[in-house]
Design a binder for these strands. Structure first.
Lengths: 195, 195
DNA sequence: CCTACCGATCGGTAGG
DNA sequence: CCTACCGATCGGTAGG
């Protein structure tokens, strides 16, 4: 409901009707609308952890865990039960220009996700799974962009095929960071480029 | 105002106050809230045309016009006077899950922009400026993703440096589509990869 | 957890 | 373009 109507558009009265409670009965559980918004964010963060962080922890750290995190994230958004797609994309875009504790909270959670991706990429660089000159924040910027773009395409154009485009872009981008094998004559090794 | 508060959050009463008119006086100009929203979209579309389509028409069609369109677009969002960043990103995300004529209109305008980028990329492929096996929709998917991602970073993290990351990603992605020069011994030509 | 209520604001209308 | 008003809904409170 918060994803489709917006975190601000989520009203206590409308929510009370859907859960068949009185408005003030439900209000008493939260104390204020802002607390309702925080509770909603908590719920989404817990679902994100359970769907992505927890299962990805089974993969070995570095490149393989980075790939697993991205796979799980794309699948999570692609098969999301909620209309409105990715809650954090909707909420962070809505609150990007509304300073306050809710925006600050969303920014911290989104940053944490970016940092988690960067951490795995850094491990991959140190382990020699990615080229040593890899710009890790630049790499994660691109990977994150592809997934959010797929979510946007599905929402606005109703094109679920966008998720395959995102997966393909992720594969290509990670492949472009593969370390160059030793090539005695200086010739470039085979590379997987765009498409 | 529509960009920062949302196209739905833009209220006739609040707008009337800022332009120092009576609420119903302003209301009479539009007839309904939906018409206000459409008029707002018209205004944003006209500004977009004037800032991007018109000046880019001076560049020769194909790869160079594609680059010019992207340059102008990034600069337009980067230096936007409105808080809230890219109006079309904010509005299309807000209305992505709200079916109706406003959403349909936003989808058509966004699609038109995507198509304009694809058209220049197609010309570039036909002209031999891009490799013949280029997946044009996949290429534009990535280019579009980078710019929207930069807008999101600036809004949520207040990091204007994200625009340089987007520009860098665009340059790399376009370079990866450069046609392979004839190489008699079959060795891959020099390539500009990620960073 | 409820009923009953508060002032403010919403989109929109009547009448001029 | 205005004043004055409509019913509905908003977040929130009083009192139980």
């Amino acid at each position: 409901m918060a994803t489709s109507e917006g975190l601000e558009g989520l009203s206590i009265g409308a929510l009370a009707k859907t859960v068949e409670m009185s408005k003030s009965g439900l209000f008493a559980h939260f104390g204020s609308k802002e607390e309702l918004q925080h509770a909603t964010i908590d719920q989404a963060a817990a679902a994100f952890d359970a769907a992505i962080f927890v299962p990805a922890a089974a993969a070995p750290t570095g490149r393989r865990r980075l790939e697993r995190l991205l796979d799980l994230w794309v699948a999570h958004i692609e098969h999301s039960a909620y209309r409105g797609g990715c809650f954090f994309d909707a909420a962070s875009t809505e609150f990007g220009s509304r300073p306050g504790p809710v925006r600050d909270r969303l920014a911290i959670l989104c940053r944490r996700w970016i940092s988690a991706l960067e951490d795995e990429a850094k491990v991959a660089v140190r382990a020699g799974e990615f080229a040593p000159d890899t710009d890790v924040p630049g790499l994660v910027f691109r990977l994150h962009a592809f997934v959010e773009e797929a979510n946007w395409w599905r929402e606005l154009f109703d094109e679920p095929a966008a998720f395959d485009r995102a997966r393909s872009a992720i594969v290509d981008t990670l492949a472009s960071r593969a370390p160059a094998p030793l090539a005695p004559n200086g010739a470039s090794p085979e590379r997987k480029d765009l498409e």
